[in-house]
Design a protein around this nucleic acid. Structure first.
Lengths: 188, 188
DNA sequence: CGGCTCATGTAATTCGTTACATGATTCT
DNA sequence: AGAATCATGTAACGAATTACATGAGCCG
């Protein structure tokens, strides 16, 4: 069948329970966005394609007086989801601008510190968000979402610790007088 | 000026020493690809744009008898690189298909194990590659590339440990005939 | 009444990959 | 001679984001 991963996000979420495109979007924003985001520009066209392929089925289920189409998995859709899950995932290389700046920071050493601080801030914020999600995931009927939340938390904790360690070293070094860098600049 | 990150990869590498497009590509493949890949389809057009913008300068430097254009940073290019480095990086959410499958694996629990194993394999392989690079980076004149290599190594080691831990739990549970988890549910 | 949220969608643009095309030179 | 590598590029395609467009119901 060869659908893209984003299509399987939709199939996977509809496996939990029937939803509208709007609900899929907000669900994604609360959960999978940490490792797989999706925008309306993907979701609505994809819903149409999946429906045409017979993997999902949409029925009009207005909420209050608002028009609303609720989609649910068909038997074929469930089968497609399962067979995709059984194939080993390809883990793709991600782009990390902070690491890129860190890598190139010999041209401007204070930028290395800035990059690490930014990475730390990012993980600290992510950690906060995940800690809010975690108990919800734990209480849910499925175990794997909780597992993934745990992964995210442990990962961010690890990253923060690493940043702190290296930042301490770097700061000590850059503030040491014998280094030949420009005057120590303190940024916001 | 507002160039894309890939343009700064080029500026950053040319800051190390003058290079041809071909050399930039192979340099990227040996180093930054772990956090920022680049293809010929980006590199050559970008070299042209950067040259037009006056940030780099290309001169014909045939190697042997092969035509070859070597690019070097101009003063403006160096300045542009520095000012970009000083801006806090935006850390972008990456896409991780293994985590996605793990998240959705309640529809097919063995797939969760498969996903974790794939993630582990990926990190094990990356670790091997990084361990080859590390001593080279350490020996080099710049400290930050080495720092980034260390990050990659520590990160993969952490990820492998996490996968192993969770895999052990999952395997124990799935092979146990009766666990206290909710009775085997049929989907939906 | 006015702003927020629910709800659905499209068009333009950006960014990047893959495949192709070409050709010279060096190595075995 | 033939394969591998050096070297430069383009065209087609793909995936995703952003911005825009529209409208209705809900809440204070």
């Amino acid at each position: 069948m060869e659908l893209k991963s984003t299509a399987y996000v939709i199939l996977g979420l509809l496996h939990l329970h029937p939803m509208s495109g709007y609900e899929i979007k907000s669900f994604v924003d609360r959960t999978t966005r940490f490792f797989w985001a999706a925008s309306y520009g993907q979701i609505y066209p994809e819903l149409r394609r999946l429906a045409e392929a017979g993997l999902i089925e949409g029925t009009s289920k207005p909420s209050g007086g608002r028009r609303r189409v609720e989609y649910r998995l068909t038997a074929a859709g469930r089968k497609e989801l399962r067979s995709w899950l059984q194939v080993a995932p390809e883990v793709n290389e991600s782009r990390d601008e902070a690491l890129l700046k860190l890598f190139l920071a010999d041209a401007e050493p204070e930028a290395g510190i800035e990059a690490l601080e930014a990475k730390r801030r990012f993980h600290a914020e992510k950690l906060e968000q995940l800690r809010e999600i975690e108990p919800v995931a734990k209480a849910g009927p499925n175990r794997f979402p909780y597992l993934v939340a745990s992964y995210g938390i442990a990962h961010s904790e690890w990253a923060i610790a690493w940043c702190d360690e290296v930042l301490a070293e770097l700061r000590a070094e850059l503030s040491a007088p014998q280094t030949k860098t420009k005057a120590p600049r303190r940024s916001a």
